[in-house]
Nucleic acid binder design. Structure first.
Lengths: 340, 340
DNA sequence: TTGTACGCGTTATCAC
DNA sequence: GTGATAACGCGTACAA
């Protein structure tokens, strides 16, 4: 039996009072007599009245929904960010609408447009690979010009004026490289992706800076640039044959763990012969054998921070002083590096 | 400069026609003259008019939002399900609101109530551990009695009449155990969780059935029950010392991979000395060394199926013939088992 | 061909 | 103390 959702109107009719009286009574307004309030409140409770969110949204022009657009959800880092966002947002009474751009510019645009027509109070997003490659940010510009708050995280752009949350990728790579250098490693390979990714670019910079600071030169032959998210152990194998490094820094977990596999199959021991440090402290790094020393990006904290910035802006509705919060990466030392 | 979102009213005023004329013109109604339509459409395009979703939701009593409540998002299986849901839902013009119950009964209830007041057209969910333990399904009952469609997946209950999507966990475990038996393995250990989980229970059953079908007896000493998601390599190590199996079936990836680590540290070789098969074909299984033969649960397909069932019910609005779709698990053969 | 009126569910203002 | 009215943005049956 379908128990129709009850509205103010139903209650009013049933109790033979006006809609506005019901509304006020349920808000415990002083205007209404104790007696009427009791009757109405009891009735409402009995029928489990709950105000309709949509109607309230229309009236208040506030949905209490946050739109989150991420490139991929089957990716531990984004997943932790979503969790951080959820956590903070829920605590503030907001829901989270998650959309996936699937690394595609077009899907990113479609998702934004879908949500921008009143469904959400603001956006939290990380640019898709397609968007970073294309460098077309008009959809973001439109949204911000409409006055919809936007917080970018991790994969950001300078083209758009809005709040941002990033981690200091240069520092992260620097710390990792420095650790390897302090272990006495001299031939440190870098596994990275093509350069159009803001994050990879910064990680490469940190790696190079650390080498220089320790008086070494950056040699291109120690750098392997793999296509985005493409795992090709043969390429890694060829690379490792050509240079025989004593340490490897990988800009992501996947490259790192496959590099370790290749090394192990070549009969090299990790960390005795080769140390490995990987970016993004995810499941793979944690559960690998040996477990991999990682740069933690603190995704959950990033998510919380982004949600906090967004909700503050939504509720304050001023459009000034855009800030960029920088999260400090930390090294999680595990078994793939030497201990000191 | 804040470019206020434009409404029908603005256009009407600007072009000095009535709101309904504008509305009709934008829908290309035959009632309106070519001339007026052109004027209005041009103006709307210029100012990038888009109807307000909230107003439409209120009018239609349809939000085109789907509420998804899952126990945990940092869990590869759920993540793939969400992706499947997203994919299908987006293609049908629906948005996905994701809420996390964090394995807690209370949070599950709160999330449901938040969304049930008009924010969504239907729910897709998987029960939290807390709910399965408590066996309290009143929140689900209330929602279905209100006529809000609900699809349960993976962790389901017989207490609620609604559409369901599950995988045949008994079969999955049976297939895995059978494969190990056919390899000639005789001492097959089972790593599982406590019994209140519907999925673990079924996996245990499949394991036991296969052993019996092959004329072996189920020995309790070959079964290790670990607390939910608690990784304790010492317990695993003690267990493996006490029985020395020649194969291991794990009801999840994490237990499986840690079991492999422990075995490897004991100097045993996988798969030469011990074969391993694990449930849930996630990142860990795929990228481990050796990679782990897994039971694929086809999360993405499950998500798609759930979304299809939900949207069908939302759009047909009848409340009969609840179905349970059963997804067939398959074995992904990798390096942790012997080849035939 | 265009416009008026009403309803979706709620709240706020003002009148009685 | 209570109720009528308008408004949020849209769509549509009906009237002009």
């Amino acid at each position: 039996m379908l128990k129709q959702k009850i509205t103010l109107k139903h209650i009013a009719k049933e109790l033979d009072v006006s809609i506005s009286t019901v509304s006020k009574a349920l808000k415990n307004s002083e205007e209404i007599s104790r007696d009427t309030k009791d009757r109405i409140q009891a009735f409402a409770k009995l029928y489990n009245y709950k105000p309709n969110n949509i109607a309230i949204s229309l009236k208040n022009k506030r949905t209490k929904n946050i739109g989150v657009i991420i490139p991929d959800i089957v990716h531990h880092f984004f997943t932790t960010v979503v969790r951080g966002i959820e956590k903070y947002a829920n605590a503030q009474g907001y829901n989270v609408i998650v959309c996936l751009s699937d690394e595609s510019f077009d899907k990113e645009v479609i998702n934004m447009e879908m949500l921008a027509n009143g469904s959400i109070d603001g956006f939290i997003m990380s640019l898709s690979a397609g968007t970073e490659k294309k460098k077309d940010f008009n959809h973001l510009k439109e949204v911000t010009e409409q006055g919809i708050p936007l917080v970018l995280f991790d994969r950001v752009t300078n083209e758009i004026r809005c709040d941002k949350v990033v981690i200091d990728d240069i520092l992260g790579a620097y710390l990792a490289t420095e650790k390897l250098l302090k272990e006495g490693r001299k031939k440190i390979a870098l596994l990275t992706t093509e350069d159009f990714f803001s994050v990879s670019k910064n990680r490469n910079l940190g790696y190079e800076k650390a080498l220089r600071d320790f008086g070494l030169v950056v040699e291109e032959k120690y750098i392997l640039r793999l296509p985005f998210m493409d795992i090709d152990e043969d390429k890694i194998s060829d690379f490792l044959n050509s240079i025989v490094p004593d340490a490897v820094l990988s800009v992501n977990e996947i490259f790192g763990i496959h590099c370790m596999r290749v090394l192990q199959r070549k009969g090299l021991k990790v960390p005795e012969d080769v140390s490995i440090i990987g970016f993004t402290d995810g499941l793979l790094a944690r559960h690998a054998n040996p477990s991999i020393t990682s740069i933690a990006q603190h995704g959950e904290k990033m998510g919380e921070t982004a949600a906090r910035m967004l909700i503050e802006r939504v509720e304050r509705e001023d459009e000034s002083n855009y800030r960029t919060e920088i999260i400090q990466p930390t090294i999680i030392t595990r078994e793939s590096t030497l201990n000191f």
